[in-house]
Amino acid sequence: MRAAYIEKTGPPDVIRVGDLPVPEPGPGQALVRVKAVALNPFDLYLRAGIVKMPMTFPYILGSDFAGVVEKVGPEVGMFSPGDRVWGSNQGLKGRQGVAAEFAAIDEGWLNPIPEGLADVDAAAMAMVGITAHLGLFHRAGLKEGEAVYVPGGAGGVGSMVVQMAKAAGARVATSAGSPDRIDLCKQLGADLAFNYKTADLAATIREFGPEGIDVWYETQREPDLPTTVPLLNTRGRMVLMAGRDATPALPLGSFYPRDCSLLGFAMFNASAEEQQACASDMIRWVREGKLRPLVGRTFPLAEAAEAERFLESNTIGKAGQLAGKVVILVD
């Protein structure tokens, strides 16, 4: 089978596309014919060796997938050959990735693709959607009627946060860096979308929520806590899910007297069962027309290295050329 893989960690130049053996599904696994693979910043960190996890070489890239069950191993009870499936959390903690024509995946990581949802879109919503859901509901306990702010509402996680918070009955504010992305945020349901390059953040947020923000979903790698913590409501919760090297100052005088919380998490710590709960809501919202993934750019499997370069330039490099997800089309 054709696959995008590495034989050592390093820059995108270490990525190879070539033939590897088709895996055989073991007990509780399904062999999935992969159709689409969505890339995430975490994939870049694994490939570069910045994040250390167990990795067997040749290591196949990619965490998020959509495809069709080709065959099943023993003890598989929920899926059958021909079923369309999507999921995430592959390529992590010793598992092989999914940027290949076939992947053997534990049944617990598989979810059914809703009717009418394209493979490219199913892959695009996987990790970002589960991440958004875990942060909003599992960690922050978002309630109907609360005020939510997320920067980067046209991005992968940000666009999911906007839509999920609205689906849960929250009031949602977000920001973006250009008029077209501001319009996109409004199309996704944001009650307020403003240009972070020109607007006064504090004044804009205070006008939106005079009592403060109940759930601040921080997507930036270097959060400005001295500015943002005072904008929280009493018992406000700030979700942190990025910024491995960041060491921001914390304004304690504004933080603890108002019972505020900082809630950090990494989605790969969530169990398959916890992620299935996220996926169940996501599938329901897709069917109800309340959730749609954003695909920014696609690449063929043969250009996997270029796909990672493009994502790297638009995340770590902040090139500003991407709204939505980078997806590799395998088939």
Rank of each mutant, 00 (worst) to 15 (best):
G116H: 08
V162E: 01
G116L: 04
V157K: 01
M125W: 09
A173C: 07
G169D: 08
N111C: 15
D106R: 09
P179D: 08
I130L: 13
H138E: 14
A126G: 14
A167W: 01
G169P: 09
A126I: 13
I105Y: 02
M127A: 15
K186E: 12
A167P: 07
G156S: 02
A176D: 06
D106F: 07
I113K: 04
K166L: 11
F102H: 11
G153M: 00
L184D: 05
S178M: 10
L136C: 08
A122P: 14
L110V: 09
F102G: 05
S175V: 03
L184A: 09
M125R: 13
E101L: 03
K186Q: 10
A147K: 08
L136N: 05
K166P: 05
A173P: 02
C185K: 07
T131A: 03
M125D: 10
V120D: 06
F102K: 03
A132L: 11
I105V: 14
E115D: 15
E144P: 11
C185D: 11
A167G: 13
G116R: 08
D183C: 06
M160A: 13
M125T: 13
S159N: 02
W109D: 09
G155L: 01
A123V: 08
P114W: 04
R181E: 02
I130A: 05
G135W: 06
L117T: 12
L136W: 04
A104P: 11
S178G: 13
A103G: 04
L134S: 09
E107F: 06
R139F: 14
I113G: 03
M160T: 01
L184I: 12
G158H: 00
A118V: 08
V150P: 00
R181M: 04
E146S: 09
A124Q: 11
G129F: 06
Q187G: 15
G158V: 00
E107R: 10
L110H: 07
A100I: 00
Y149S: 02
A132K: 08
E146T: 08
G108H: 01
G145F: 06
D106H: 12
G177P: 05
L110D: 05
G155A: 02
E144G: 14
G169N: 11
A104I: 12
A123K: 04
V172C: 05
V172A: 03
A123M: 06
Q187R: 15
A118I: 06
E146H: 10
T174G: 01
L142I: 03
T131R: 03
K186V: 08
D183L: 13
V128P: 02
V157Y: 01
A124V: 13
R139A: 12
L117G: 04
D180Q: 15
A176W: 03
M125Q: 14
Q163E: 01
A154P: 00
I182T: 10
G169Y: 07
G169I: 05
P151Q: 10
C185V: 12
I182P: 09
K143N: 14
T131L: 04
F137G: 13
L184P: 07
K186M: 09
